[in-house]
């Protein structure tokens, strides 16, 4: 179905990356560049959530908590263990993935709402542990003074611009890997499970193994995004593990287009800038954002990318001569 690389077409994707590449030149101030850096990190995490929830159809409400695990792993190794950033990041990804595999083994035996509420509970437990285990995590205060990643040669990650490109490169790598996954047999297996788990089972798919792989990979994305967050924001606190943050990511995914490669990124960029432009309303911005969210869900149920995709499909079916190749290539 709607699982192909580019729904905007190759042109749209290239334009998007050119814009990202030159964004720092177009930006009015450093703040916007820093904001965009944050958006890339969020998008990287949401990409992972999209794998398990969008492609595989399992609503994981603990994704933010897994990101927090990655962030705290880097923060603790660097601040309390004196590690350099890069090995800490690697350990963060591996540790989050291992934890994901372990918890996934138990959680994925459950289906639908049971899985969702189970993961919600896991998320709350992780949040409460981060909040209450003062001696390790410094509780509500969070961990300060995380050093930025060590630079290479002339690149110094103390500055905003290199941080921006670091986040962009990480997002691109994440996107590329996700593209390969979703195009592969494995990706099709995930989609088969989303569409009907009994059917997938009937055609000989080991659904538990596939779901576990999808869940583990998605938590690795969470761990990577979290570790990167630690290195760039240089401060972590338990709020990352709050379910509200996972809700944010679900919203990005749904508004952009769930189960579509570019959905999470488009949703993330769009909504973060929307919230930002409502900033003048301060704490009242949710008065506007809440209803906008509801309207989007009612009128654009497939998200923005899904809407564009459907329109394109309709156009293509009106020209029967080209549709046979076009629909499989878009």
């Amino acid at each position: 179905m709607m699982n192909k690389f580019s729904l905007l077409g190759k042109g749209g994707a290239s334009l998007f990356f050119l814009l990202c590449l030159f964004f720092p030149l177009l930006a009015n101030n450093q703040y916007q560049v820093a904001l965009m850096t944050n958006i890339f990190i969020l998008a990287l995490a949401t990409l992972g959530l999209n794998l398990i929830t969008g492609y595989t159809g399992q609503l994981n409400l603990a994704h933010g908590s897994f990101m927090a695990i990655g962030a705290y792993t880097v923060a603790l190794l660097m601040v309390k263990g004196g590690w350099p950033f890069w090995p800490a990041l690697l350990v963060a990804v591996l540790f989050t993935g291992m934890l994901g595999a372990l918890l996934g083994t138990v959680a994925l035996r459950l289906k639908d709402h049971y899985f969702a509420i189970f993961t919600m509970s896991l998320g709350v437990i992780i949040l409460l542990i981060l909040e209450k285990w003062d001696s390790l995590t410094e509780g509500h205060n969070g961990i300060f003074g995380i050093e930025p990643p060590e630079g290479f040669g002339l690149i110094d990650f103390h500055q905003i611009l290199p941080q921006y490109y670091l986040a962009l490169v990480m997002l691109l790598i994440g996107l590329l890997v996700m593209w390969r996954i979703t195009l592969s047999l494995l990706g099709r297996t995930f989609i088969a499970i989303r569409n009907s788990e009994p059917l997938a089972q009937a055609i000989g798919i080991n659904t538990m193994r596939a779901k576990l792989l999808s869940f583990t990979l998605s938590t690795c994305y969470g761990g990577l995004a979290g570790g990167l967050y630690s290195g760039i924001v240089r401060f972590v606190d338990p709020s990352l593990a709050n379910i509200a943050f996972t809700f944010d990511m679900i919203t990005f995914m749904l508004v952009g287009g769930i189960g579509l490669l570019f959905g999470p990124i488009v949703g993330c960029v769009l909504l973060m800038w929307l919230v930002q432009s409502l900033q003048f309303l301060q704490e009242y911005r949710m008065l506007i954002f809440g209803p906008i969210l509801i309207i989007l869900v009612i009128y654009f149920p497939h998200g923005l990318m899904g809407y564009l995709h459907l329109r394109r499909m309709r156009r293509l079916t009106r020209q029967p001569s080209s549709n046979a190749t076009a629909t499989t290539k878009v």
């Binding site: 749904l254 769930i258 949710m286 954002f289 969210l293």
Partner: peptide, 24 residues
């Protein structure tokens, strides 16, 4: 006729709105 996920997002929209309202 929407998916359960859409109901959940809509419910979150209501939640965010009402919390902001109470806050205001």
């Amino acid at each position: 006729n929407a998916l359960p996920l859409h109901h959940m997002i809509a419910a979150i929209g209501i939640l965010l709105f009402l919390e902001a309202l109470a806050h205001a």
